[in-house]
């Protein structure tokens, strides 16, 4: 709808004056910008805040064994997250363990992604405008691939008969590993079966796939700050005899410290919710809280309240992590 038509609608409201003279006067005093802001606020409240509150309310619901669940006000779902359903007869740290894997994968995944994206983007920004544009298009294009697509690709790459293990076997590396005893070492690291090396299932494959998923975001987040670095400073340092590492340490890193931290935090939060990669590449023993949340809500037990309680705990933990990192960043800023 065009702009005049919108103000036309407001005219109609003025005529109707439903909310009494005070309200009418208030509305009359509002410009179109205020009204648009009001509408946007209402939409945000409805689309973002309402589902959020619903999850919290559902998390207090009561599970009925053998059926579904009912609304309620019950803390047992939260207690279960920490000590298990059989408490106080027995205690299980199952969900704490899942939370640990969730955080560990997200931290490692974001660190690896930023670790690879940083040098890549740094050298990219030093290239010509043409090559920069080409790389950016490539990175943006890889962003369009969904998690399912990426996982499928990695699945083929890591499979026993079609991927890396088959290649290693064909060129004789597998039999060399067996002869030298390295296969036994790899088995201790969960990277081999008695017959061959294996990457599925392994925590290595899980973390690498997650890092790959967010790597394009890391490049895009770091591109602007890295390309804004003053080249003359680097050249000056160089002419004064600083090596590449010294330049990196004293000029580049301090200039992009905050964007790097910001990227890490954003990717960390993004990776907390990873589902497909984990279900595919992590053994059940090493799976994460999002998988458990999904199973509670959509799985055979129909236990949405317990799923919601796990989600709330995950959210709070993520909040604590982010708050803690921001606090550290602020401390570092103050010292610098």
């Amino acid at each position: 709808m065009s702009y005049p038509a919108v103000s036309g609608d407001i005219e109609v409201d003025r005529e109707a004056g439903k909310g009494g003279p005070a309200f009418a006067a208030y509305i009359r005093g509002l410009g179109p910008a205020n009204i648009i802001m009001g509408v946007i606020t209402a939409v945000i409240l409805f689309v973002f805040v309402a589902p959020f509150l619903l999850v919290i309310v559902v998390s207090f619901g009561e599970k009925i064994e053998g059926a579904s669940w009912v609304w309620g006000f019950d803390f047992s779902n939260y207690i279960r997250v920490f000590v298990g359903v059989d408490w106080p007869n027995s205690v299980t740290l199952l969900y704490a363990l899942k939370l640990y894997y969730t955080l560990a994968y997200a931290v490692l995944g974001s660190l690896i992604a930023v670790g690879f994206a940083f040098p890549f983007t740094y050298f990219m920004t030093q290239g010509s405008r043409r090559s920069q544009a080409m790389w950016l298009v490539f990175v943006l294009a890889s962003l369009s691939m969904s998690e399912v697509f990426v996982v499928m690709g990695w699945d083929i790459l890591l499979s026993n008969r079609s991927g890396l293990p088959a290649l290693l076997k064909a060129v004789g590396i597998t039999s060399w590993l067996k002869d030298t005893g390295w296969l036994a070492v790899l088995r201790d690291w969960d990277l081999a079966s008695p017959r061959n090396v294996k990457f599925k299932t392994s925590q290595l494959a899980t973390v690498l796939t997650m890092a790959y998923l967010v790597w394009p975001y890391a490049v895009i987040l770091l591109f602007a700050p890295l390309s804004r670095i003053d080249r003359s400073m680097i050249e000056a340092a160089r002419t004064m005899g600083a090596g590449s590492l010294t330049v990196l340490r004293t000029i580049v890193l301090p200039a992009v410290r905050l964007p790097v931290l910001g990227s890490l935090l954003l990717l960390f939060v993004y990776l907390l919710g990873t589902y497909v990669s984990v279900t595919y590449f992590a053994a059940p023993a090493h799976q994460t809280l999002p998988v458990s949340i999904y199973e509670s809500i959509r799985g055979a037990t129909l236990n949405a309240p317990f799923g919601a309680a796990q989600a709330v705990i995950l959210l709070i933990t993520a909040g604590i992590f982010i708050g803690f990192s921001l606090m550290l960043a602020r401390l570092a800023e103050r010292k610098a």
Binding site: D86, T92, L94
Partner: peptide
């Protein structure tokens, strides 16, 4: 069901 699922998962 909750008991079996959790013991199984653990």
């Amino acid at each position: 069901e909750s008991f079996i699922k959790e013991k199984w998962d653990a």
